[in-house]
Amino acid sequence: MKSLILIMISGALINNVVLNQFLGICSFLGVSKQMKASASLGGAVIFVMTIASAVASLLYNYVLAPFGLDFMKTIVFILVIAALVQIVEMFLKKKSPAVYQALGIYLPLITTNCAVLGIALTNVQNEYNFIQSVLAGFGTAVGFTLAIVLLAGIRSRIHEEDLPRPVRGAPIVLISAALMSIAFMGFSGLSF
């Protein structure tokens, strides 16, 4: 039990997917202009990453590993995750339009997010079992959401500031993200 909680906290804070592993930077910088949009994206990422981790774990443990097809995992994971998100999207559209509206365009957008694939591969590398993979995926996605919502908050404040001309726009966002990353490095000493 303790190790499961540790996996989640480690995924969310200590090995934060964006700020420590530098995966999913594109959406992290691209969709963090508004708090609301970034929160929706975060929700969609939590949803997709948890499911993708679960399916990838099952697929690896029961199909790829027994056949000795370890080297094909990247391709198979991409294929399956993309199809899975598509299916989930259709399902939501029919059964739960409210959720579909809330996640909106972000659901298909993160199908190709490297963070989603990255976590599926990291789970395999760490030799996690099914439950551990699901929790690691969930924890990591929560970490992504935390990071992107924090950055959106910072950016909305920066937006109102009178900045020196050279750092306006993209530069100040990258500087903020870098400072956040350094701050998150502080978690690396965390132990239980």
Partner: peptide, 14 residues
């Protein structure tokens, strides 16, 4: 084996 497995996965997904 790789071809067969990947094809089967592809067909199932499709």
């Amino acid at each position: 084996i790789t071809t067969i497995v990947i094809t089967v996965i592809g067909i199932i997904v499709g």
